[in-house]
Structures are given as C-alpha cells and as structure tokens.
C-alpha cells in the first residue's frame, strides 16, 4: 500500500516540524516558564505525531508504539511540572513582560511557617 505509507511519512514529517518548532521556541523565548511552554509541549506533540506516523507505515508496530505514547503522555507533563515548581520556588527571574504572579504570596506564607 503505497498511499498508506506516504500518509504515515507525512504525519511523521509534521511531527518532526513540531519538534523543530519546540527547539526554536526554547531558544527564542525570554524566560524559563515560557521556554517550557514553547519547548516541551511542542516536542511532546511532535514525538506523538511521529510515532503514530511510523505506526501507520508499519501496522504491526502500533501496539508497542502505543505503550511509548502512553508513557510520554503521562511522564512529560509531570516532569515539566516538577521543573517549573522547583524553578519558581528557587526564585527564577521572570521576564519583564510578566503581568502577574499570584503564586509568590502563597509560597511566602508556607516559607514563614
């Protein structure tokens, strides 16, 4: 099936473009939180799309690829959450464009206790 393979390859290509955009975002964004926003999320979507595309090309692989997608979907948000929480606790500087930071007050309260 030639057409199915080309569809799969195109999905993989779209995924790889998202990975590239993730890399671009991580370079261009001004502070850590925005880097997480642009970097990790885009590359997560890119990875999932690429794996699904490879699964379309090789239908026998789809089960194992689904396990990988499941792992990526569970682990990735957790790791970016852990890092952003640690960075905020440590007092990482935020960009000048920042509008509001409502977490600081509640965190100061816990520190005093």
């Amino acid at each position: 099936m030639e057409i199915r393979e080309i569809i799969g390859a195109s999905v993989t290509l779209v995924g790889s473009i998202f990975i590239f955009l993730g890399g671009l975002g991580i370079v261009r964004m001004p502070d850590l939180f925005n880097r997480i926003q642009a970097g990790t999320k885009a590359s997560t979507l890119g990875t999932i799309l690429s794996l699904i595309g490879l699964g379309i090309i090789n239908p026998a692989w789809i089960w194992k690829l689904l396990v990988i997608v499941f792992f990526v979907l569970i682990t990735n948000p957790v790791s970016s959450n852990v890092i952003s929480r640690a960075a905020h606790f440590r007092g990482t500087k935020m960009t000048d464009k920042t509008v509001a930071d409502l977490l600081v007050e509640s965190e100061n309260k816990t520190r005093e206790e």
């Binding site: 995924g15 790889s16 990975i19 993730g22 890399g23 991580i26 850590l32 880097r35 997480i36 970097g39 990790t40 590359s43 997560t44 890119g46 990875t47 690429s50 794996l51 990988i68 990526v72 990735n76 790791s79 970016s80 890092i83």
Partner: peptide, 13 residues
C-alpha cells in the same frame, strides 16, 4: 534541564 528534556524527547523519535 529543560533543554535536556527536549533533547531526550526528540531522541525517542
């Protein structure tokens, strides 16, 4: 660390 994360996610692909 975030850069490390992105590199490894891309490496899976």
């Amino acid at each position: 660390t975030i850069a490390f994360d992105v590199m490894t996610i891309a490496s899976i692909t």
